[in-house]
Simulated scan of single mutants.
Amino acid sequence: MPTATTTPAANAKWLKKVKWDEHGLVPVIAQEAATGDILMFAWMNRDALARTVELGEAVYWSRSRKKLWHKGEESGHVQKVLEIRLDCDEDVVLLKVEQAGGIACHTGRHSCFFQKFDGADWQSVEPVLQDPDAIYTKPKKSK
């Protein structure tokens, strides 16, 4: 279960309308507003959605790291949120975003949905726009 500190906005009435799963999460689809391209899928908890509204930039919940993740915090590929929608069942959020740098995927591609099934196997159909090693270089720690 997410254990991030709850922001005051995380108790807002509009957040209570969202149907959170048993872990306090909701699935989120990020869509590029200008093209309609689906860029990525992620998760949010109440704090992440509240912070997204406060900042005007996408903030997700990282299930692997168990913490809030401001999209682009390491890569610089921030998602400016232009619109937030809730589906008819109130259990999926859609973010219409402007993607900084044109790269949403950690593989250096425009979209995380770059593999297409050709009837027999999965084929990469989008080019790598930037080498991930160049995007996620971290300074070496001195011993």
Rank of each mutant, 00 (worst) to 15 (best):
T6G: 03
T6W: 02
T6R: 11
T6C: 06
T7Q: 01
N11M: 11
K13G: 12
K13R: 15
K13M: 08
V18S: 13
K19I: 15
D21N: 15
E22G: 01
V26M: 11
P27S: 14
P27Y: 15
A33H: 14
A34G: 14
N45D: 12
N45H: 10
D47R: 11
A48E: 06
L49A: 03
V53M: 13
L55W: 12
E57R: 10
V59R: 10
Y60H: 07
S64T: 15
W69R: 05
H70T: 03
K71Q: 09
G72S: 07
E73Y: 09
S75P: 02
S75H: 07
Q79Y: 07
L82D: 08
D87Y: 13
D89L: 12
V93Y: 00
V93E: 06
L94M: 15
L94S: 10
L95P: 00
Q99F: 05
G102V: 04
I103N: 01
C105R: 00
T107I: 04
G108T: 11
R109S: 10
R109C: 05
H110G: 03
S111Q: 07
C112A: 09
C112M: 10
F113M: 13
F114A: 07
F114R: 05
W122G: 06
W122D: 03
V125T: 08
E126V: 07
P127L: 03
V128G: 04
L129W: 01
P132I: 00
P132C: 01
P132E: 06
A134K: 11
T137M: 02
K138P: 01
P139S: 03
K140F: 14
S142T: 14
